[in-house]
Amino acid sequence: MNLDLLIAIFITVVGASTPILIAATGELVVEKSGVLNLGVEGMMLVGAITAFLVVFLTGQHYLAIVLAAGAGIATSMIFGFLTLSLSANQTATGLALTIFGTGFSALAGQGYSARPVTLLGPLFPAELATHPVLRILFGYSALVYFALIMVVAVWWFLKKTRAGLILRAVGENDLSAHSIGYSVIGVRYAAVAFGGAMAGIAGACFPLLLTPQWAERMTAGRGWIAVALVVFASWRPFRLLAGAYLFGLVMTMELYAKAGGGPLSAIPSELWAALPYLATVVVLVLISIRRDASTNAPACLGRPFLPSN
């Protein structure tokens, strides 16, 4: 295997990992505030169709990203209103949000199937972006760098800032945070909105970064992988990064196997396709067995905040 192929594989892995990483980073913040939003997949699909339509109609990629984030926020606010203001069950609401997002995106995308758009180009000038070796560092679109920056930013925010400390406190013990005088609902709304924006951008990665067209359910369960990844990473941003790239690697292997890529095709491509999901199941089982990992979970995760005694 030559260097060129290895670099090509690496770049594909990074691309495939990016939407998962962005969505999972958003979900990590949401869960740290004590909210379990299982609607990531739905919000991603809403983001994906929004981004596709904006690019299809205007050709503006960055506008598409911003509006996809906005669409993600709008979708997440449905969840926020139901679970935070009305104290609805978070699991059920999150599942409903995914079903909603799937249906809504299919409706909005009717008639646009397989209509081509252009991908978002590399961020850096062509000399760097297409350089045979340096492209491993500079050959990506802005979304890839955005994902990496957000991982660091979220780590820094949670660990080093007062606002991050308050967010963790709210997720750890909502009643105590309330009694000290923090707005639990306010913090959680902000976290859910951030998660929605990130899921929207993650969705935008599909038409802008991976396959330049619209296809129903084009996120193909990556939202679920992102949710699992948060647990897999035991709510730590840098483990999230490692986990997302690992999933990206497995998914890229599938592509190469399908393309008849030498030794990889010895394993049926269906098995490759199933691997990320199998890995998710295995990881969740392992996490459940290992108790110390689960102790890092926010103590109030998934519990509605009911301040009255």
Binding site: L165, A169, E172, N173, S176, A177, S179, T295, P298
Partner: peptide
């Protein structure tokens, strides 16, 4: 407070 408003993981 009687029931401490503490955050165990912090």
């Amino acid at each position: 407070f009687q029931h401490f408003s503490l955050f165990e993981a912090l």
